[in-house]
Design a protein around this nucleic acid. Sequence first.
DNA 1: CGTAACCTTGATTAAGATCAATTCTCGTGG
DNA 2: CCACGAGAATTGATCTTAATCAAGGTTACG
Lengths: 237, 237
Amino acid sequence: MDALNEISKIFLFSGLNSKELQFINDFSCIKTFKKGEIIFFDTEPYNGFYGVLDGLVKIYKISNEGREYIIHLEHTGSTFAEVPIFEKFENAQTSEMVYPANAMAIEEKTKVIKVPVRPFIELIHSNSDICMKMLASFAKRLRFLNKHIESITLDDVTKRLAKYLLIETEKINLKNNCRNCSVIELNISKYDLASHLGTIIETLSRALKKLQTEKIIEVNGKRILINKIESLKSYTT
Amino acid sequence: MDALNEISKIFLFSGLNSKELQFINDFSCIKTFKKGEIIFFDTEPYNGFYGVLDGLVKIYKISNEGREYIIHLEHTGSTFAEVPIFEKFENAQTSEMVYPANAMAIEEKTKVIKVPVRPFIELIHSNSDICMKMLASFAKRLRFLNKHIESITLDDVTKRLAKYLLIETEKINLKNNCRNCSVIELNISKYDLASHLGTIIETLSRALKKLQTEKIIEVNGKRILINKIESLKSYTT
DNA sequence: CGTAACCTTGATTAAGATCAATTCTCGTGG
DNA sequence: CCACGAGAATTGATCTTAATCAAGGTTACG
């Protein structure tokens, strides 16, 4: 695929003209990671943000006790690690910034683009549309995080799982343009799913079991069949 | 105080010239709330964001079971409920938007300014600086929420409390320009503090007790004396 | 003073983390 | 094609944390 075409897969860059895309392309670099490879650690000095061209990236933290939790899962088109750019803007503490979390490729051949800060700042000043897109993308993430906190604070694990399954079903329906597809193929390991739901694998396993014994879902490895979507929905209220 | 001068207390508007401030002033309205009064509910149709001119505002949600949790506490200078503006931008679902959470004044004579969406969008398009400020403010909030999730997922209540106390101490030191002020005067009720830490008042009470029996702090109503700030810090690691 | 809101303390319970033991799955090499 | 081994997932037993329930104490304020 043509490089500029590929870059425009990133939502943030999707409205740019070819000159602007070329500008991005000149300064950025594209790299492909194996499954399990680290893209950056939360100790590395910050020097640019990333966009997912293909594959799947997990953004996560690890506690002192060694427990991991996943903040975000980033799919094709998403950008990540853009927040520090604008903290720089406010603080001008350019030197001592580090990445805010760890990032790992969790699909084979995950392809990302790395955009350095300086040229991007230039671009953003010359193009107010990209600024608005950035705001929209931040707004979306803020909304997501608020929902996530709400869920972690107020819901038990089974409820959180039910919410996750419904969101995934929604996504699949949207992608396949069907209204009641009922099979979810997990694209992440159960270990990662647990950590994304703010729990551990054993507890996730029991939650899945619970929904299964209630005949709401059927689990078969990474394939989850939704039997009673209405029951699942009533779980989340 | 002069109205324009007052408006410029809002961080987002702090760099605007008097013409722009006048523009904001013409379209916005300023209102003062009593302690405990609701500013908006999460069911109301969305029609603008707010800035705190004076006092303290809690942004919170209530679960079906009636439990409350506080997402943010907004002080003078902060804006809140700006996220939907940019979701509108993306979705154009102008009609069906509601406020994302509830907002309540929790100090007497809390004074807020309400800015309607349309004029603000106009302003933001004509002034790229305000756009960058908005991005900086969103970035700050994203960072805060990520820390918050990390804390809720990985820390126990005492650790969360310790972190809160340290942040407050930091704020007070900054404000009073001293390096080791050791008395915190809580500006919120313990009920609100508990809900802000993602727990309930009884558990908070026990956590405070715990730190007190370890001689790390001394609690006297709303006044908390920090005895051993180093011990407190070591709690948070 | 009296009452309501706020806070503390104790006893009990429930959810989920931890620990430990298997079982399942799948890729690799013999 | 099968056997093996490693990582992934399940299951059970136990323990810890914090929520819930209940009672009593404090404070503020009319």
